[in-house]
Design a protein around this nucleic acid. Structure first.
Length: 431
RNA sequence: GCCGCCAUCGUCUAGUGGUUAGGACGCAAGAUUCUCAUUCUUGUAACCGGGGUUCGACUCCCCGUGGCGGUACCA
């Protein structure tokens, strides 16, 4: 009979959820869901000095934000009895000794080969002579990671241990512990690490490493999920954007990459941009809300502004900069008003012509379609080039080299504000 | 130092003895256009080195090199 798959994500709450840990959690979650198993979360909070409640909350929040719900939650700090009784068992077998207040596990002295049969790496061989005796209990009476980890995985009937490659060298010691406790070791899968651009282990030095920071910058969970899962795993159908359920369906540990993967923020941005563009205006407004509090006021204007810049923002925190000129008269240098193929005279003429025709437009005709045809007409009747008129209107309204089209801006700003900004531009040109 | 893992375009990767080595990001060019963004098209660029095995190696083996991890009373 096939036993039910049970996996766990076992962070220590000594810091905020790291992006690499988030990926480990994701791989565990995917494996569990793929196999109809259980995904457990276990806080390895045996280090009393460094473990903190806020970090537990941070990790819980991060997991939830990523939509990786845990089926069971455990705290090692509440499982003291289990470690004590496991210790008793080992003591009875004469495998334990005390030294300097600590409790040690004797590593067999004969050259014993230990094979780690890893799902992603195959059989890896170690020799017990290369290991020192293992501390099981620290002198403060708390169990070490190695011991608590193994005891818990046995009691929680964990069938697959999916964790970072940094644990591969620990695994043979753990296997010795399993054997000493008469337990069959679980299957192991050590996944490679996420790397800095210089291929060193991903760290604070070269960018953000806390999931938090990505949430605050305005990344979407679906973008992060796709990005993280494809850092080491690839879809057999080579799809670039997958839903969680598509990932679960296709996920397979045998397709995970052995080598480390560089964290490429540009790729993440690309994915995020894709998902951001797919949002409806309502959804987008809702997502943007925390990032645009300073623009609360004219709700209609805010909505038009957001609508016009939706395909430009790669992350939600790009938004304020992209829409600020909607709410305040922009600063810009006068020469920017002149299109590269135009002249000050032609530009001045273009703006005056625009001002003249726009002033005559009735409120009900103030739509981008109508405005477009009105301005097109003005250009041909005055023998102007498009760049003599559209470019300076756009700059007059936005102050930017790149922005949505002039008629979209005119529509969004409304007649009064548009005319006011065009007048300011005409004055700047000073003709 | 010792032990272990890893190695395809700049980056993420496909590839499991015979391919014009494919895709995506990035970058570049073009189309559209007043601009930027979007979209579409095209281009750019890789099998770490050396030995084997084989009729034939990116693919299998060995050595080297490089990167990374472990070697804690952190996890």
């Amino acid at each position: 009979m096939e036993e039910k798959v049970r996996v766990r994500f076992a962070p220590s709450p000594t810091g905020p959820l790291h992006i690499g840990s988030a990926r480990t959690a994701l791989f565990n979650y995917l494996y569990a869901k793929k196999n109809g198993g259980v995904f457990a979360l276990r806080f390895e909070d045996t280090d009393k000095e460094r473990s903190q409640k806020v970090f537990e909350e941070n990790i819980l929040a991060g997991i939830k934000w990523l939509r990786l719900e845990a089926d069971e939650i455990y705290y090692q700090s509440k499982r003291e009895n289990s470690y004590q009784s496991a210790l008793k068992k080992l003591t009875e077998r004469g495998l334990i000794y005390e030294s300097d207040g600590g409790v040690y596990f004797k590593i067999p002295v004969e050259n014993k080969k230990i094979i780690v049969d890893d799902i992603v790496r195959g059989k890896v061989e170690f020799d017990s002579k290369d290991f020192d005796d293992l501390v099981l209990f620290k002198k403060d009476g708390t169990p070490t990671f190695h011991f608590a980890n193994v005891v818990d995985d046995i009691e929680m009937k964990i069938t697959h241990v999916i964790r970072g490659e940094d644990h591969l060298s620990n695994t043979p010691k753990h296997i010795l512990l399993y054997e000493a406790l008469d337990a069959t070791p679980p299957k192991f899968a050590h996944i490679s690490l996420i790397l800095n651009p210089d291929r060193s282990k991903m760290s604070k030095r070269s960018g953000d490493v806390d999931l938090d920071e990505y949430i605050r910058a305005g990344y979407l969970p679906e973008a992060l999920i796709n990005f993280l899962v494809q850092l080491g795993w690839s879809d057999p159908e080579s799809r670039e954007f997958l839903t969680m359920s598509e990932i679960i369906q296709s996920f397979d540990l045998s397709r995970v990459q052995k080598g480390g993967a560089v964290f490429d923020i540009k790729h993440l941005n690309h994915l995020n941009h894709h998902y951001l563009m797919q949002k409806s205006l309502d959804e987008y407004m809702q997502l943007a809300e925390p990032f645009i509090k300073q623009f609360a006021g004219d709700k209609a204007l805010l909505e038009s502004a957001i609508k016009l810049i939706q395909d430009r923002a790669q992350i939600l925190s790009d938004i304020p900069e992209l829409i600020s000129y909607f709410f305040t008269q922009p600063e810009y240098d006068t020469p920017l008003l002149i299109f590269k193929k135009s002249s000050p005279e032609q530009t001045s003429k273009g703006l005056s012509v625009a001002l003249k025709v726009l002033e005559k437009v009735s409120p009900k005709d103030w739509t981008k379609e109508k405005l477009q045809s009105i301005l097109d007409e003005a250009i041909s009747s005055e023998s102007l080039l498009p760049g003599d008129l559209f470019w300076p209107i756009r700059v007059a309204l936005s102050g930017q080299e790149g922005s949505p089209s002039p008629v979209e801006l005119l529509e969004a700003f409304g007649k009064e504000e548009s005319i006011s900004r065009i007048k300011i531009a005409i004055n700047k040109l000073g003709v």
